[in-house]
Simulated assay, not measured.
Amino acid sequence: MFLSIILLIVALISAVAIIREVRRKNFFAVGFAGISFVVFGWFSIATIISILTTGGGAPTGH
Score class of each variant (00 low, 15 high):
Met1Trp: 12
Met1Asn: 05
Phe2Gln: 10
Phe2Arg: 10
Phe2Asn: 06
Leu3Lys: 06
Leu3Glu: 12
Leu3Pro: 01
Ser4Asp: 06
Ile5Phe: 14
Ile5Gln: 05
Ile5Gly: 07
Ile6Val: 15
Leu7His: 04
Leu7Gly: 02
Leu7Ala: 13
Leu7Met: 13
Leu8Asn: 03
Leu8Ala: 14
Leu8Phe: 14
Leu8Trp: 09
Leu8Tyr: 04
Leu8Thr: 08
Ile9Thr: 12
Ile9Cys: 05
Ile9Arg: 00
Val10Met: 13
Val10Leu: 15
Val10Ile: 15
Ala11Arg: 05
Ala11Thr: 11
Ala11His: 02
Leu12Phe: 14
Ile13Ser: 04
Ser14Tyr: 09
Ser14His: 13
Ala15Ile: 13
Ala15Pro: 00
Ala15Asp: 03
Ala15Val: 12
Val16His: 06
Val16Thr: 07
Ala17Gly: 03
Ala17Tyr: 09
Ala17His: 08
Ile18Phe: 05
Ile19Trp: 10
Ile19Gly: 01
Ile19Arg: 11
Arg20Lys: 15
Glu21Val: 09
Glu21His: 14
Glu21Asp: 11
Val22Gln: 08
Val22Asn: 07
Arg23Pro: 00
Arg24Leu: 12
Lys25Ile: 11
Lys25Leu: 13
Lys25Gly: 01
Lys25Arg: 14
Lys25Asp: 07
Lys25Asn: 12
Asn26Pro: 00
Asn26His: 11
Asn26Val: 08
Asn26Lys: 08
Asn26Gln: 08
Phe27Val: 12
Phe27Gly: 05
Phe27Thr: 12
Phe27Asp: 04
Phe28Arg: 10
Phe28Gln: 08
Val30Asp: 01
Val30Phe: 04
Val30Cys: 05
Val30Glu: 02
Val30Tyr: 03
Val30Met: 05
Val30Lys: 02
Gly31Asp: 02
Gly31Gln: 06
Gly31Cys: 07
Phe32Val: 15
Ala33Asp: 00
Gly34Ser: 10
Ile35Tyr: 10
Ile35Ala: 13
Ser36Arg: 06
Phe37Thr: 12
Phe37Met: 14
Val38Phe: 14
Val39Trp: 02
Val39Leu: 13
Val39Tyr: 03
Gly41Val: 07
Gly41Phe: 08
Trp42Asn: 05
Trp42Lys: 04
Phe43Met: 13
Phe43Ile: 15
Ser44Lys: 02
Ser44Asp: 01
Ser44Glu: 01
Ser44Phe: 10
Ala46Gly: 01
Ala46Pro: 00
Ala46Cys: 06
Ala46Gln: 04
Thr47Pro: 00
Thr47Trp: 02
Thr47Lys: 01
Ile48Ala: 11
Ile48His: 03
Ile49Leu: 14
Ile49Gly: 00
Ile49Lys: 05
Ile49His: 02
Ile49Asn: 02
Ser50Val: 05
Ser50Gln: 09
Ser50Asn: 07
Ile51Met: 07
Ile51Asp: 07
Thr53Val: 13
Thr53Trp: 04
Thr54Ile: 10
Gly55Ala: 03
Gly55Trp: 02
Gly56His: 11
Gly56Val: 11
Gly57Tyr: 08
Gly57Ile: 14
Ala58Val: 15
Pro59Ser: 06
Thr60Met: 09
Gly61Pro: 00
Gly61Ala: 12
His62Arg: 12
His62Ala: 11
His62Pro: 06
His62Gly: 11
